[in-house]
Deep mutational scan, measured.
Amino acid sequence: NKFNKELQWATWEILNLPNLNEEQVKAFIDSLKDDPSQSANLLAEAKKLNDAQA
């Protein structure tokens, strides 16, 4: 289903952001699991944090 694909993509993207630490990655992944419908928003937040920590 649509959410599953978005969830998988967002998870992969977050796991490959170079500037997030392990705790941050885990928090984002946990949030994705809690509410897959928010995957696009969570991914945007993760990318923002990644850029801020570059």
Rank of each mutant, 00 (worst) to 15 (best):
N4D: 15
L32E: 00
L20Y: 00
D30P: 00
S37G: 11
F28P: 00
K2W: 14
L17D: 01
Q38A: 10
L15M: 13
D51R: 10
D34F: 09
A44L: 10
S37Q: 08
A27G: 14
N19V: 01
D35M: 08
A52V: 09
W9T: 08
A54W: 07
I29D: 00
L32Q: 01
S39F: 15
Q38I: 06
W12A: 14
N41L: 11
N41E: 09
E6H: 08
K33Q: 13
D51L: 08
N50G: 02
D34Y: 10
K47W: 05
I29G: 01
Q38M: 08
A44E: 06
A46V: 02
S31A: 14
I14G: 01
L32I: 04
K48E: 09
N19M: 05
A46M: 02
Q8G: 04
A52T: 12
Q38E: 07
A44M: 11
S37T: 14
Q24T: 03
L15Q: 13
D34P: 02
F3K: 15
D34Q: 14
S39P: 03
I29T: 04
P18Q: 09
T11I: 11
L20I: 04
W9S: 07
N16S: 12
Q8K: 06
T11Q: 05
N41V: 09
K47P: 00
Q24N: 02
P36K: 03
F3A: 15
K48I: 10
L49F: 04
A52E: 10
Q8A: 13
F28G: 00
Q53N: 06
T11W: 07
A52R: 14
K47Y: 12
K2F: 10
P18E: 11
L49R: 03
Q8E: 15
L49K: 04
D35Y: 07
Q38P: 01
A46D: 00
E13R: 05
D35F: 07
N4A: 11
V25S: 12
P36E: 03
L49S: 02
N1W: 00
S31E: 08
A27E: 10
E22S: 10
D34L: 12
L42E: 01
L32V: 04
K2N: 15
L32T: 01
E23K: 11
L15Y: 07
D34R: 13
L43I: 11
D30T: 10
L42S: 02
N1R: 04
L32K: 00
V25H: 07
N4S: 06
P36V: 06
T11L: 14
N1H: 04
E45F: 05
A10N: 04
Q38L: 09
L42A: 05
Q8D: 04
A54S: 12
L7A: 08
K2R: 11
A54Q: 08
A10F: 15
N19Q: 06
A46K: 00
I14E: 02
A10D: 02
N4H: 12
K47F: 05
N21H: 11
K26H: 10
Q53H: 04
N50R: 01
K2A: 15
L49I: 08
L15P: 02
D30F: 06
I14P: 01
K33A: 12
K47I: 12
L42T: 12
V25N: 01
K48F: 10
A40M: 15
L42Y: 13
K2G: 15
K26S: 07
N1T: 04
K5S: 12
N21K: 09
D35W: 08
W9R: 12
I14K: 01
Q24M: 04
A52K: 12
E23W: 12
K33S: 10
N21T: 11
N19A: 11
E23I: 09
L49M: 08
E6K: 03
N41G: 08
L20V: 01
A46W: 02
A40V: 08
K48W: 09
N16T: 08
N21P: 02
A40T: 09
L17P: 00
D30W: 08
A44N: 10
N1G: 13
S37W: 09
A10I: 12
S37A: 13
K47L: 06
K26E: 07
D30I: 08
E13G: 04
A44P: 02
W12P: 03
E45M: 12
N21E: 08
K48R: 12
N19F: 14
A46S: 02
Q24F: 02
K33T: 11
P36S: 04
A40I: 10
I14M: 04
Q53I: 07
E45N: 09
P18S: 09
D34W: 11
L32M: 14
L20M: 02
W12V: 11
K48T: 07
P18L: 09
F28I: 04
Q24A: 02
E6S: 04
F28Y: 05
L17Y: 05
Q38K: 10
I29N: 02
L7T: 04
K33R: 10
W12R: 06
T11N: 04
A46R: 00
L49Y: 04
N16Y: 04
A52M: 14
P18D: 05
F3H: 15
E13Q: 12
E45A: 12
K48L: 14
Q53P: 03
K33Y: 15
N50I: 01
P18V: 10
W9I: 10
K26F: 09
Q8V: 06
D35L: 05
P36G: 03
P18K: 12
E6L: 14
A40S: 11
D34G: 10
D34V: 11
A40F: 13
Q53A: 09
E45P: 00
L7K: 02
L20A: 00
N16V: 05
K5F: 03
L49Q: 06
L15A: 09
A44G: 08
S31D: 07
N19K: 03
D34S: 12
E13I: 11
A40L: 14
I29P: 00
V25E: 02
N50K: 01
K33N: 15
Q53F: 06
N19R: 03
E45Q: 14
A46N: 00
N4R: 03
K47D: 02
L43K: 03
T11R: 04
I29V: 10
L32G: 01
Q24R: 01
E13W: 08
K33E: 10
A27Y: 11
K2E: 15
S39D: 02
T11G: 03
P18W: 05
K2V: 08
A40E: 08
K2I: 15
D51P: 01
Q38Y: 05
L7P: 02
E6V: 07
A54L: 07
F3D: 15
K47G: 04
I14V: 04
E22T: 12
L20S: 00
W9N: 08
E45S: 07
S39H: 14
A54D: 13
Q24L: 03
V25Y: 05
A52D: 11
L20H: 00
A52Y: 13
D51G: 08
L7E: 07
K5M: 02
S39Q: 05
S37R: 06
I14F: 03
W9D: 12
S31H: 10
P36H: 03
L32H: 00
L43H: 03
I14A: 01
L32D: 00
A54I: 09
V25T: 09
K2P: 14
I14R: 00
L42N: 02
W12K: 08
V25D: 00
P36T: 04
N16F: 04
L42V: 14
Q24W: 02
F28D: 00
L7I: 13
A52Q: 13
Q38D: 10
K26A: 13
N21V: 06
